[in-house]
Each structure stands twice: as C-alpha cells, then as structure tokens.
C-alpha cells in the first residue's frame, strides 16, 4: 500500500492509503484522529468536515491521496495552544450548542470556516452556511446562537429559552 504524508494540525504525519482510502478514513484509522466522524455516505451530514489548505471540505468525499502534502486541520487541532477551548469551542459549551457530540466536530470546523470569511454573520447567514451540517439533537437553535456569540455578537436578545 502506498505511503502518503500530510501536515495535520501542524505536524507532519504519514500513513498507508489505497487509492480508495478516504481522507476521513485515513485520519481516523491511520492517524488515530477519531474526532472526525462519518455520519453519511452521500456527502450531506458534514460530521467529517475538516480544513484542507485553509478551506472546509468533507473529508469523507475526498481521497486521502488528494490531500498528500496538504495542510490539514481537524477538530483535534482547534483548541488553543495551552489546551483551553478556542473561542468557538467555548461558545458551543457556553450556549449548549451540542448534545450527543457526534456532529459537533463538523459543526465547529464549519463555524470556523464561516467566521473566517464572514466575521459577523447574521442568523440567516449562519443557517444558510450550515446547509451541509446536520444535527439531530439541538434543533440548531443553540448552534446558531453559539456561532453568533463566538463572532462577538450579543445573543441576549435571542430567546434564551
């Protein structure tokens, strides 16, 4: 099996991959980065979203070999350097933006990609942006709220209830 390598969360890592090995599989099985989840096989649920060379992609719909030499960021690389939660992660905890946690890595990665392009998104823009991230637990209410809060917007007016 060919060996491929990429820079994941700042560290060069390598492992074996067939042609058909998906990036999500490679991260989970070869690199043991199991924070990236697989929730569907039609590229819709978004539990597998990671950043490749700075943009959000669905790692279950990309071959590992396509990411050879790329810079990849996964949920494991999102905390602050001292290990504390990043602003987005902290906002998800503060506003109860997760329940079972399975969609959460993808949600956080998508939220980070959104805020990079659009630092103060409206509620509608957030909902639109999350088209490719399914959550079955939260009804999205608190996810949207968390992302607004992470962008520094006052969420006090949003029905807290």
């Amino acid at each position: 099996m060919p060996k491929i390598s990429m820079k994941v969360n700042g560290k060069t890592m390598s492992g074996e991959a067939e042609g058909r090995t998906l990036l999500a599989q490679f991260l989970r099985e070869e690199l043991d980065l199991t924070g990236t989840h697989i929730g569907c096989d039609t590229s819709q649920c978004g539990a597998c979203v990671v950043h490749v060379d700075g943009v959000a992609v669905k790692s279950c719909t990309m071959f590992a070999a396509e990411a050879e030499g790329a810079e990849v960021t996964t949920i494991e690389g999102m905390a602050n350097e001292d290990g504390s939660l990043s602003v987005i992660q902290q906002a998800f905890q503060d506003h109860h933006g997760l329940q079972c946690g399975f969609c959460t890595p993808g949600m956080v990665m998508s939220a980070a990609a959104l805020l990079k392009d659009n630092p103060k998104p409206s509620e509608a823009e957030i909902r639109d942006y999350l088209e490719g991230n399914l959550c079955r637990c939260t009804g999205y209410h608190n996810i949207v709220k968390a992302i607004m809060a992470a962008s520094g917007q006052d969420v006090g007016a949003i029905a807290a209830e």
Partner: peptide, 21 residues
Amino acid sequence: ASYMDYAMPRADDLPMFQVDH
C-alpha cells in the same frame, strides 16, 4: 434510502424557538 430523498431538517428549515417551562 438516503439523505438525497429523506429530508432531514436543516438549520435553515427552522426558526429560533420560544420555549418556556
């Protein structure tokens, strides 16, 4: 048989909820 035809609720299908207990 997949999310291509089974319509899961997405963020933009739903409003902010008003709940009270």
